[in-house]
Simulated scan of single mutants.
Amino acid sequence: MPAKTEKPGNEQPRRRQARGERRIAQLLEAAASVFCTTGYTAASTNAIAREAGVSPGTLYQFFPNKEAIAIELGERLMHEMRQTYGEALAPIDPATPLEEAIGAAVDRFIDFNCRHPVFFTLMHGSDVPGRMAEEHDALHATLISRVEALLSPFLTDTPEADVRRTAQVCVGIYKAGLELVLTHEGAEREAYIQELKNVLIRYLDPLVVD
């Protein structure tokens, strides 16, 4: 009896895995749209499935509930956000003007948040799932440390506690301004971005040691 010709054993599993990843990405994209439109609390798995163009049963093959979807989406965005921290708040040449340093950092963060508006929805809502809230706290602490490192070359001889306080104020100003930026589009959005930069520069300029 002739031997059967067999396909490589891992070909089908790879294809199934690729299809599964595409489906997960589709569901996460749909969830981001629904969360931005309705908020996390009002969102439902049925609405997410409808937005994705699949049945609720298909959604449940990948996620048991809405919280699991939000956590997966949040973790992926946090990973990308950490990369943004590294790019936006990398050490700079001490000779770099304050305005240039602040402008570059703000542009990087604004770009991330405008590309992923759901990040703001999930991270700053009052109804964020517990696990995500813990991750956000860790991310916030990392951000403060990175901003401190960015500011240190400009605040030479300033006590460490004062630099940290200044970093916290800068992050608070940014978050407040970000909400305004995200609620506008086009030229008006650009105007708010510039206002945000102006506020940060005017706050920091008197503190800079020449």
Rank of each mutant, 00 (worst) to 15 (best):
Q83D: 15
D111M: 02
I102A: 12
M78Y: 10
I201S: 12
L122W: 00
P91E: 14
E51R: 13
S33A: 04
R16G: 02
M132Q: 07
M132G: 10
K175R: 07
Q26E: 14
L59Q: 10
S145E: 14
V209N: 05
T58K: 09
G130I: 03
M78D: 15
E190T: 07
L204A: 10
C170L: 12
H140E: 14
A95T: 00
R16I: 09
F62V: 04
K197D: 08
A31D: 04
E160R: 01
R19Y: 12
G39H: 04
D157A: 12
R50Q: 14
V118E: 11
A47T: 03
A105E: 11
P64I: 00
E87N: 06
K66C: 11
S33Q: 06
R14D: 14
I71A: 09
A42D: 05
R131E: 15
P56F: 13
P117Q: 03
D107R: 06
T5R: 07
D162I: 10
H184E: 03
L77D: 10
E188L: 13
V147S: 03
I144H: 00
Q168H: 06
S145H: 07
L155I: 08
A191F: 15
A149Q: 05
T156R: 07
V169D: 03
I71M: 11
Y60L: 12
F63D: 14
T5P: 02
E87S: 14
P159N: 06
G74H: 03
N65A: 01
F109L: 15
R14Q: 13
G130T: 10
A133F: 11
R22T: 00
D210S: 13
E195K: 09
L122M: 00
T158F: 07
R164K: 08
T166M: 14
L59I: 11
R82Q: 13
G9V: 08
A68L: 00
P97M: 05
H184Q: 07
A25E: 15
V171D: 13
T45Y: 10
T45W: 03
L204I: 08
D162R: 03
E72G: 11
A52K: 09
